[in-house]
Amino acid sequence: MSESKTISTFESDSGTGAAGVRFHRVNKAFGTNVVLRDLDLDVAPGERVVIIGPSGSGKTTILRVTMTLERPDSGTVQIGGRHLYHEPHGDKLRPASEKHMSKVRSDIGMVFQHFNLFPHMTALENIMLAPMKVHGKARDEASDTGMELLNKVGLAHAANQTPGQLSGGQKQRVAIARSLACEPRVMLFDEVTSALDPELVGEVLNVLRDIAQEGNTTMLLVTHEMAFAREMADRLLMFDNGQVIESGRPADVLDHPQNPRTQAFLGAVKAH
């Protein structure tokens, strides 16, 4: 059918550089609480998409499903043309093995709201872990690139410090460097500034701008920073009740919202 045709064209995506993300009729519910409702979502390679919406609307779940932290109840997810939860088997798709998922997953990096740095390792060790253990790099090489990444986020001097010694903003910058070390083709940012004190938000956003400028990853961001969303996003998605209810250029959505729920949400945000 036409559906399989679109899949095959999508698969012609190149193997390196930024990768696209495609959600097709994805459903996810926690008990009776439906968080994703027949969600269709297409993110082009290299695109920067910011997802906004009221809390509890399931926007974080989009990222968690992409990262395989939650398995969708139904529907398909593709990263760079490869199915994440399914393996093609002849004409059909079969539920993917852990091995297949792990292969596709290596294209994705995620930065968490609460950093989730490993507290028993130094900043540099945090960054070196995956390149050494997953990608089999030598210690020296991993250490060199690790230092470069730390320098990129302005924390080379903190290489030997453990997360316990770092401020929230510093932790988040190390976490970003850690996920960059895997050279992901898609990066997911889950409310990366929500757990930070207001004065520390700027330093993290600067790092994000820097990554965006290099432009060789697709970025999916969930955020509450509207000003930042306006500046960063190629496309803004308003997400509510398990579905994208409005989508478009950030200026259009933020300044001239069409959907009444978007208007209400933006009104509430601005009131603060």
Binding site: M147, A156, Q165, N206, D210
Partner: peptide, 29 residues
């Protein structure tokens, strides 16, 4: 085990590896 959580001190510019010492520190904007 407790020690592994404590970490070291911050590095002075002299202690950084050469290829980084000469690069511009921090994020360029």
């Amino acid at each position: 085990v407790e020690k592994s959580y404590e970490g070291g001190r911050t590095l002075t510019p002299d202690e950084l590896p050469a290829h980084i010492r000469h690069a511009t520190p921090g994020v360029t904007g």
